[in-house]
């Protein structure tokens, strides 16, 4: 899906997001830069805990970055500024990863979906109610669900309530933080088709975070692979799958389970052993060095920088260098 244009909608420049924790400073996102074009879907994948949700929350204006600059349509978004934040919340929305924690248990489904429209003073009350029903049906629930409470729903049903809530205010940019991982494949397809249709119709732009790499490949124009706070590879989705260059991306793609018992039994996986190092004391060299099957001396000494290897294909690894003509 794509209605991609050349207009830069969102730009992240050298974004860092650090958390103060008991053991020191936790570098959840460390010097990340990329741009998202209007109408584009940017996929974001990587190991659990590598900073995807944190980056998504920075892009969405929930977390002010520790350093670095977030701009929307060429203008800096200053999240410390109340009116900037309010205006940004009208154009940028998030579908949260956790369907259990992200819905207020005391509100009915209808008031959860309606809330954003009320805050932003959209439509009259009658029309808002109609929209709640439309949105419920759009995400594959039915209008009878409107007056129930979140705990009466299964995980996947709650996830769809979150999707309806995000769509309600007709945003331009949506951070989709694992919007489909709790859904069965048919509803996954339904939600993906819905997101595609909305993109085609309204020119929406998505930052799409997911673990299901088949879906990410299908939906994204470009994909960024993160590891421990850094982007380690960024390319168009076809290029990333056809010509995977970073050792971590290779391991990640080889681990995708195949929905076919015979093929699955024969699949070869690149097994990466060891645990992710702590984001509190990141190593001096490459963050992946402790687990990388191709690690060499240089890797432990210096951090590789994200470089453009071929046009549009960026990699941060000492072993992968641009071809010199």
């Amino acid at each position: 899906m794509s209605t991609k244009s050349n207009e830069v909608l969102l730009s992240l420049e050298d974004i860092c997001k650090y958390f103060k924790v008991s053991g020191g400073t936790l570098k959840a996102v460390d010097h990340v830069s990329f741009e998202i074009h209007k109408g584009e879907t940017m996929g974001l994948v990587g190991e659990s805990g590598c900073g995807k949700s944190t980056l998504g929350r920075v892009a969405m204006g929930i977390y002010p970055p520790t350093s670095g600059k977030l701009s929307y349509k060429g203008k800096a978004v200053n999240l410390k500024h109340g009116s900037d934040r309010f205006n940004y919340s009208k154009v940028a929305q998030i579908i949260f990863q956790d369907p259990y924690a992200s819905l207020d248990p005391r509100m009915t489904v209808s008031s959860i979906i309606e809330e954003g429209m009320v805050i932003h003073n959209m439509y009259d009350e009658k029309r808002r109610k109609e929209r709640v029903y439309e949105l419920l049906e759009m995400v594959g629930l039915n209008r009878e669900h409107a007056n129930r409470f979140p705990h009466e729903f299964s995980g996947g049903q709650r996830q769809r309530i979150g999707i309806a809530r995000a769509l309600a205010i007709e945003p331009e940019f949506i951070v989709c933080d694992e919007p489909i991982s709790a859904l069965d494949v048919s509803i996954q397809s339904q939600v993906i088709n819905l997101l595609s249709d909305l993109q085609d119709r309204l020119g929406l732009t998505y930052l799409f975070i997911a673990h299901d790499l088949n879906i990410v490949k299908y939906i994204s124009d470009r994909i960024a692979v993160m590891y421990l706070g850094n982007v380690v590879e960024l390319a168009s989705s076809d290029e990333l799958y056809k010509n995977t260059l970073h050792p971590y991306s290779k391991a990640l793609l080889s681990a995708v389970p195949i929905p076919d018992p015979n093929e699955e039994a024969q699949k070869k996986r690149i097994i990466i052993s060891g645990d992710v190092p702590s984001p509190i004391n990141t190593p001096k060299g490459c963050n992946f060095a402790g687990r990388c099957p191709q690690v060499c001396d240089q890797c432990k000494e210096s951090k590789p920088k994200l470089q453009e290897i071929t046009p549009g294909h960026f990699v941060a690894c000492h072993l992968v260098q641009p071809q010199k003509k």
Partner: peptide
């Protein structure tokens, strides 16, 4: 059968729509 058909294939083309089961489950 419908569930298995909904799986996106590894090389699904972006212009193709994913298959899903029309309608909603019963209340």
């Amino acid at each position: 059968q419908a569930l298995l058909k909904s799986l996106p294939s590894v090389d699904a083309d972006k212009t193709e729509r994913l298959v899903s089961i029309a309608g909603t489950p019963p209340d």
